Amino acid sequence: MSMQRLDHSALDLFANLDISSNRDSGDYITIPLSPYQSYTEEDKEEYKISDDDEREIVERGIKLRRGQQKFRDALLKRYNNTCVITGCKIVDILEAAHIRPYRGKNDNHPSNGLLLRADIHTLFDLNLIAIDPDTMMVHFHPKVKNEYALYDGILLITNAGYKPNVEALASHYKNFKSGA
């Protein structure tokens, strides 16, 4: 059962209830409810397990991101299968993040990418994380800073010779600072 806000008007149902005669007998107290107040038929039915997929299928147009796998592979190699912020080495949850959003094949250049753990990638895309292009220090937005305090203020983990594009980081950092 989940916690829910109490509707104080519901307590009016008990205002004129005489329970003194039932206290000692151990009988249950039955409170008559109108159909509006009672459970629905669906609430009375038990959940039945089914393997049928009843979801509606919807066709949508998406923009193809050519080279995404090649981009990820290049970042995995460049950063030694390691998240550049957390140091996580679980390849299954590491994602190739674009510093500047993908708009075409030129944006799949490895220096426009960071290898990030999935949750960190989401925060990066939401401008809740940024990297100072001058110091390579990681900064978290106040909304998430407490949750990720361990990583706030650390230096980006990079391999010798492989650094992210400073101009791309500066652009992302500017958006982070402006709250965009």
Rank of each mutant, 00 (worst) to 15 (best):
A96K: 06
I57G: 07
K105L: 15
L64N: 07
S20M: 14
M136D: 06
Q37P: 11
I57D: 14
H121S: 02
N108M: 02
L115R: 10
A149Y: 07
N165W: 00
M1R: 11
R78L: 01
T40M: 12
L156E: 08
L64Y: 12
F176W: 11
R72I: 10
T82E: 00
D73W: 01
V144L: 00
N80G: 03
D134R: 13
N112C: 03
L94Y: 06
G61S: 08
P110C: 00
Y36I: 12
L126I: 01
S34P: 11
G61E: 13
N146V: 05
D134Q: 11
D132P: 14
E167S: 13
Y79V: 02
A96S: 10
H172S: 01
N16P: 12
F176M: 07
N165V: 02
L126T: 06
T122I: 11
N165D: 15
K163I: 00
D53Q: 08
R100K: 14
H172R: 03
Y173D: 06
N22V: 14
H8I: 12
K143I: 09
I99Q: 02
A180D: 14
H8N: 10
E56A: 09
M3D: 13
T30R: 05
D27T: 05
V144E: 09
E41L: 14
D18I: 06
A118F: 07
K77N: 03
L17Y: 10
N22C: 04
R66K: 11
N81V: 09
E147I: 09
T86R: 00
Y173C: 01
E45M: 12
N165E: 02
I62L: 14
Y79W: 04
I99M: 01
S21T: 06
D52F: 13
D24K: 14
K177Q: 15
L114H: 04
S34N: 12
N81E: 12
H141W: 04
F14L: 15
N80A: 02
Y151V: 10
N175K: 13
D24S: 14
K48P: 10
K48N: 12
D18G: 09
S25R: 13
S178Y: 06
D53P: 07
R72K: 13
R66W: 07
R100W: 02
I93P: 15
Y151H: 14
F124E: 05
F14C: 13
Y173I: 07
L75G: 04
F71P: 12
A149R: 15
T135E: 07
Y39G: 11
N159P: 03
I99Y: 04
V166P: 07
D12L: 13
D125F: 01
N106S: 06
I19C: 09
L115M: 04
E46F: 09
K177G: 02
G153E: 06
E54D: 14
V138R: 11
E59K: 12
T40C: 08
N81M: 00
K89F: 00
P35N: 10
G104I: 06
F124H: 02
M136W: 03
